[in-house]
Design a protein around this nucleic acid. Structure first.
Length: 598
DNA sequence: CCTGTCTGCCCC
DNA sequence: ATTCTGC
DNA sequence: GCAGAATGGGCAGACAGG
């Protein structure tokens, strides 16, 4: 059985990490694949993706940052505190491990002979199999088992190897390569040119398991890969949408005319029906069949085909009024136990918007209008299963009108889709055939808030050395207190990130400021002083943030959904002039009125 | 048995 | 989910 | 414009530990 020393993999990772050129990265990957014995090509691919098995199999490590830190401390015989310190400073657990290991000298003869020096070199298979064992450990004592397994690996690892083992475990290799680059490299490594890339990508889209595709390619060649087809029961890579904020632009991208449909605030689902069997897959291809027995039932009864793959959005509804409920409520359905009760409290509606396969026939290459016809043909609509509401729009005004109606009906926005002859179902991400349009993409349509920076969190990866996110608060004039509403870590340019520590440094304090109310423990606290403009999609109930605590619901505050920095520093405002708690509460109520109208 | 912490290529 | 950046 | 890597709120499940 062929194997590969893990240090060789680590060396390639290091080279890839050091360059920013995608072409160069691909070249290194190609060299790696050529050096990899065919038997373990799938393992190398999974490790390089930072996973163990394809998503739809649901194999989970159950180890992340904290447990990995514990294991590292144990392997090195240092305190968790020490590991944590090094981690926070470097912003990367892998780098921290490498640094700490390089610092360490053999302390005693026993250590010397018992330690890494005498150990057999790590192999890809050993690393992979150990990670699988970690994933399988469960039940009482599982944490210790997982940690011990990881410790055993780290004890035999050289510093550089530890770097990448830890990164693989935390799911962030951070090499600058992901699926698309791996596909390029596979094409070149096994067929000699990038020409075959499209064929390989297509196979991957229909059977999103890179390890499997690579193995087929390595053992059976391109012909084997061409044989990979859509299989009912294996999820297809879902088509994604681009975003735009202007109806005019949307129309010009889509050729002056489009299908426009409601974008429901729920969970996207790809439903597979195979005779008497139904499978449901999430957007990230997790198997979510057990969460939604009611949806399974509807697919079984109301889709008139022996076999079919359809796509739609699951939305929670109020069992009494039938009104659509916000996404937050649907989350209660993502459970393993108490499904029956949850089903009564949060019944699900399914709004279908596409069909990809019917009775042996792939519809992937059919234009959207044809697919919609098929969908209409096989669907028997009922109370809780219907087509997503849609129409055809040819002017910006028509888009605006339909959009307003969607918002009034409790949707997030709309999807605008091409209906041209080339409007195929583009598996994966590519293209501008689908465009989403949401209220908060438009500055004028959404209220921004001016919030006070009261704390910050150390950044990771490329944010190492600066802040990853800031803790933001609204002001309560009645109590003269600042209460948290969100963290914000998106919207900062590199320049912002460089400036922020300088701006905030003068206000840094060692403990939470007495005028700040927060349930969250920040890495750094500040005197409330700096005000930033923040935009978000809506206000939600929060179990964590303290703004509006108990004023709308017992044991709940308010938070901002999808918060980001607008780029505007409100240095014209004092912290006492920031958005008030009362204003946030009003925003919460006014948005609910809109949805209640529906 | 209850509570707190951590995890999820989680969902959005 | 949104956003920014290097290629 | 793509591909990748930063980052958000919040839910249930799985353990650990009192």
């Amino acid at each position: 059985m062929g194997d590969l020393e893990y240090s060789i993999l680590a060396d390639f990772y290091e080279k890839i990490e050091r360059t920013a050129s995608r072409i160069e990265m691909t070249e290194y990957l190609v060299a790696l694949f050529k050096e990899t014995p065919i038997e373990i090509i799938d393992k190398v691919i999974y490790l390089t993706q930072g996973k163990l098995r394809p998503d739809y199999e649901g194999v989970e490590l159950g180890v992340a940052e904290k447990l990995a830190m514990r294991a590292l401390a144990q392997a090195l015989g240092v305190s968790i505190k020490k590991v944590e310190e090094t981690y926070k400073k470097s912003g990367d657990l892998g780098t921290a491990a490498q640094m700490l290991m390089q610092q360490r000298k053999p302390v005693s003869i026993v250590d010397f002979f018992g330690g890494a020096v005498e150990a057999k070199p790590l192999t890809v298979t050993r690393v992979y199999e150990t990670l699988l064992k970690i994933a399988k450990a469960s039940g009482p004592g599982a944490m210790d088992t997982k940690v011990s397994l990881l410790v055993s690996l780290l004890k035999d690892a050289k510093p550089k190897e530890a770097r990448y083992i830890l990164r693989a475990i935390t799911g962030k290799l951070r090499l600058g390569i992901a699926d698309m680059t791996i596909l390029d490299a596979l094409a070149i490594a096994f067929t000699g040119s990038k020409n075959a890339r499209d064929v390989i990508e297509r196979a991957y889209n229909m059977h999103p398991d890179l390890g499997h595709v690579a193995k087929v390619l390595a053992t059976k060649g391109l012909e084997g890969v061409k044989g990979i087809r859509i299989t009912v029961g294996i999820p297809i890579l879902p088509m994604l949408a681009e975003r735009l904020s202007d109806p005019r632009e949307i129309l010009s991208k889509l050729g002056g005319k489009c299908i426009i449909e409601y974008k429901y605030d729920g969970e996207r689902v790809q439903a597979h029906k195979k005779e008497k069997q139904v499978y449901l897959f999430s957007r990230r291809l997790e198997n979510i069949t057990s969460h939604y027995p009611d949806v399974v039932e509807m697919i079984m009864n109301n889709i008139k085909a022996k076999e079919a793959i359809v796509e739609g959005e699951i939305v929670a509804v109020d069992p009494d009024t039938g009104e659509m409920l916000p996404f937050q409520e649907l989350m209660h359905r993502r459970r393993k136990y108490g499904i029956e009760e949850a089903m009564e409290m949060y019944p699900a509606s399914l709004y279908l918007f596409d069909v990809l396969y019917v009775d042996g026939r792939s519809l992937i290459n059919e234009p959207l209008p044809i697919r919609k016809e098929y969908l209409k043909k096989i669907l028997v609509p009922a109370d809780r299963i219907q087509l997503a509401k849609s129409t055809i729009a040819e002017t910006p005004e028509e888009i605006e009108t339909f959009f307003e109606q969607a918002i009034a009906d409790g949707c997030e926005g709309v999807m605008c889709k091409s209906l041209q002859a080339d409007s195929i179902y583009q598996m994966g991400a590519r293209g501008w055939l689908w465009i989403k349009f949401k209220r908060d993409y438009r500055y004028e349509m959404t209220d921004t808030v001016d919030l006070v920076v009261v704390g910050a969190f150390h950044g990771k990866g490329r944010r190492a050395g600066t802040y990853g996110a800031l803790l933001m608060a609204a002001y309560s004039p009645e109590e003269d207190i600042f209460k948290t509403v969100c963290k914000v870590g998106s919207g900062f340019t590199d320049e912002d990130l460089q400036k922020l520590p300088e701006i905030l440094k003068p206000y840094e304090i060692s403990h939470k400021h007495p005028r700040v109310q927060s349930k969250m423990e920040a890495d750094v606290w500040f005197v409330p002083a700096i005000v930033l403009e923040i935009i978000g999609a809506e206000i939600t109930l929060s179990p964590l943030h303290t703004c509006g605590w108990g004023k709308i619901k017992e044991n709940a505050g308010l938070a901002i959904r999808f918060p980001r920095f607008t780029g505007r520093y409100r240095d014209d405002k004092s912290p006492e002039q920031a958005t008030t708690e009362k204003e946030i509460i009003e925003m919460y109520y006014s948005q609910r009125k809109v949805t209640a109208k529906a």
